[in-house]
Amino acid sequence: MSVVIQNLCKSYDDLQVLQNVDLTVEEKEIVVLMGPSGCGKTTLLRCLCNLETADSGSICINGQYLCKEENNGILYADKKKRQELQKSIGLVFQNYQLFPHRTILRNLIDAPLYHKYMTKQEAIQKAESLLKKLQIFDKKEEYPYRLSGGQKQRAAIARACMLQPSVLCFDEPTSALDAQSIEQVGSIIKELSKDMAILVITHDETFAKNIGTRIVKIKDINQTKN
């Protein structure tokens, strides 16, 4: 199993956002997490991507614990292991978060070069093949501000794929896209799911039905009273 989340709890001060959340995402599966705004979807995703610290519960990625319950508390993996696990999870942000001062190609190749995953030549080759696949090869030397919303998103997907994650998460991937781009993103996600597990957060029901192999309503897994 790619991702196993058990009994995950998270609160901000007095506000309990996640309460005993259980969720699994298998390899080659597209799990779509749905629910209204403020119900904890993004928080769950952020805990999984190590952008938030959970209060209790466990997150296991490819058999390795990012955090686990211990003595009624939570024990996070050490920094080195967390960084290692981080590479197994990719995230495509809602507003893409490409680095504006880097060209699209640099946005893609920097992470694998930083982690010494591949040589510069290999990284460029891989980036170019991904950009071709996502039909934005001609934008490789452009800066992000020159791309449309759909192109930026494809660039962000390509960047997330460069580290060959086993789980790829999407935060509201359709929120800023037109119908044609939504369709394109849907087929890209389906294509990607052949090699990895996908977790998508959205409140676009049509999109969810179109791409999801499993649709999970957050209210069904989150026991918070909020």
């Binding site: 991507c49 190590n50 981080q86 978060q97 680095f99 001062h101 920097d110 992470a111 982690h115």
Partner: peptide, 30 residues
């Protein structure tokens, strides 16, 4: 700078120093 830039660096596994020098600083200088 949008806090998402730092988060994107975290997700890509960059260290704090790398994020500061190569992601935040160039944008902050501008």
């Amino acid at each position: 700078i949008d806090s998402g830039q730092k988060e994107a660096s975290t997700v890509l596994g960059y260290s704090n120093t790398h994020t500061f020098l190569y992601i935040l600083l160039p944008q902050a200088l501008k």
